[in-house]
């Protein structure tokens, strides 16, 4: 643009610019509606759960002996441990830190799988506080543990996501799905649409966020607690 006439070169100029923006975040609705174990059970029957989410929830996925299999196993074990700690009502930040630190930066993606799982879990823990299914101080302790994770151990995009989550700000596509989960007044079709939209986010970030959220739902339904 040094010349007097502005001339540009773009090889495919009339195509719209490819939009690649970070996920916008927001706080959860403070009153998203009631939630109960029974309604969570019903919701699990109607939401969309992609294969990757199922793999992370079960700890089984990827070719035997592959890196993918290891990621899924590691992530599953750590998330399960975090769910147990949350449901035991542990209010010590330090109780969450080892598992959270093991997850941050783990796996593929610009926001690695482990970070997405942590954010999904944090969002759902806040949601379930409203229904009395998760101890409020435990959810706060878990969120606080995210703020203390070393920023140099994951990508800048994931670090931003974690810092937002620690302040109660979540990707809106996740927040919308989480708010509707377990709400007996929610329309099943809308819930399914929201989970489809969440799962379609990124290459697998959405599926990983959903896995984090659903891990806690499964924990609540199964009555999991750390021994």
């Amino acid at each position: 643009m040094r010349s007097t006439a502005i001339e540009t070169f773009l090889d495919d100029a009339m195509n719209p610019v490819r939009v690649l923006k970070p996920l916008p975040c927001r706080e959860l609705d403070p009153l998203p509606g009631p939630v109960s174990r029974a309604s969570l059970v019903l919701d699990l029957a109607c939401i969309f759960v992609p294969g990757r989410t199922r793999a992370l929830l079960s700890g089984q996925g990827g070719e035997p002996g592959s890196i993918e299999e290891t990621v899924v196993k590691w992530a599953h074990a750590r998330v399960r441990s975090l769910v147990g700690t949350l449901l035991s009502g542990d209010v010590r930040v330090v109780a969450y830190r080892p598992d959270a630190a093991a997850l941050t930066g783990l796996g593929p993606g610009l926001t690695p799988t482990g970070d997405d799982l942590l954010v999904g879990l944090a969002a759902m823990s806040q949601r379930l506080v409203g229904g009395g299914l998760v101890e409020a101080r435990a959810a706060v302790a878990f969120s606080t543990s995210l703020a203390g994770l070393p920023s140099e151990e994951t990508t800048p995009a994931a670090n931003r996501l974690l810092q937002n989550a620690s302040k109660g700000q979540f990707p809106s596509v996740l927040a919308s799905a989480v708010e509707m989960l377990g709400n007996p007044h929610a329309d099943p079709e809308s819930l399914r649409t929201l989970t489809v939209r969440l799962a379609a986010t990124g290459a697998h970030s959405g599926a990983d966020l959903l896995a984090g959220a659903l891990a806690l739902v499964h924990g609540v339904i199964d009555g999991e607690e750390k021994p």
Binding site: I67, A102, G105, G107, L110, P112, E153
Partner: peptide, 19 residues
């Protein structure tokens, strides 16, 4: 037989080293 592309976080480096 296997190909993985991921960002070079400490956890991923540890994971790959273990593998």
């Amino acid at each position: 037989s296997e190909s993985v592309a991921m960002m070079g976080t400490q956890t991923n480096r540890r994971l790959l080293a273990d593998a």
